[in-house]
């Protein structure tokens, strides 16, 4: 048993090394204390609501969020706006619906069941408006980038003047955390860009953290349930394992062999 566990742990350590080596090759990202990490990690409700505000006032003018519906904003484990608030948010957007009985498309205020309205009609329109670069959909963005939340958080704060010797084309910006350091998105945040209703000081760092938290939720809307259920499931398994261990010892005591 001891031998078995020793060899097994060695193998697992060896298998895990490439993963960590891989990460070590890349640049050090800025770190912050994410509330949703760890065994009991939960979203900071305030950060999610503020993050939504940053998203909708800043990012949403270019970035779509096509897998989310307005109803999600009022769901448990998310920003948890009240249903009235979520309805008001939805109603502030114009949604194209139809065709009606005359065969015409028409515009109406958004409902909870509507998907987030897209800033552009299609990918081509988005590219045309952004100098050929397509602003990626943000629904699963943090899961689609190697560094995850740390990468997005750093990227938003990584704009600086290009070092000497690097020349940038028109509409290209320097960002020390971007892959290849060249990014078509201009620096989206500046101190005081949004006015938080809860009085939080809207520094670039604060907004980066809030909007990244919001993006973590949009990518993993069931993260809180997952953590809660995971803790219960693993606790249950550990207790059951201990019980089965003693039953096994008891049963095997009938034969003179170690288990």
């Amino acid at each position: 048993m001891k031998n078995f566990l020793r060899i097994l742990s060695l193998i697992i350590v060896f298998l895990a090394t490439p993963l960590s080596c891989h990460a070590a090759e890349k640049i050090e990202y800025l770190k912050t204390d994410w509330s949703f990490k760890g065994l009991f990690g939960k979203f900071d409700r305030g950060a999610l609501q503020r993050g939504y505000q940053v998203y909708t006032e800043v990012c949403a003018s270019c970035h779509s969020m096509k897998y989310l519906s307005y109803r999600n904003l009022a769901e448990k484990g998310g920003p948890e706006f009240t249903e009235q608030q979520a309805k008001a948010i939805a109603a502030s957007f114009d949604v194209t619906d139809g065709p009606n009985s005359d065969g015409e498309m028409f515009t109406r205020p958004g409902k909870l069941s509507d998907k987030f309205v897209m800033p552009y009609e299609n990918v081509k329109a988005a590219q045309a408006a952004n100098g050929g670069a397509y602003p990626p959909d943000m629904s699963v963005l943090v899961k689609a980038r190697g560094g995850g939340v740390d990468y997005i958080y750093s990227l938003l704060q990584g704009y600086e003047d290009p070092p000497a010797g690097i020349s940038l084309d028109e509409g290209v910006h320097y960002n020390k955390y971007m892959y290849g350091n060249k990014i078509k998105m201009s620096n989206p945040l500046s101190d005081g860009l949004v006015e938080y209703s809860d009085g939080t000081n809207a520094t670039v760092e604060q907004m980066s953290k809030d909007v990244t938290t919001f993006l973590m939720w949009t990518a993993e809307p069931h993260l809180e349930t997952r953590h809660q259920m995971g803790f219960k499931a693993i606790l249950y398994l550990i207790i059951l394992t201990i019980l089965v261990y003693f039953s096994m010892k008891r049963i095997w005591s009938r034969v003179e062999t170690e288990v």
Partner: peptide, 30 residues
Amino acid sequence: VIKDGFALLMFMIVFAFFVFYTPNILGHAD
């Protein structure tokens, strides 16, 4: 049966850890 069951439960603890706490670590972000 009981010995396999015991080992299976230990395996399931590792399995559950991946599923509930690092579900995407073995996949590729792309």
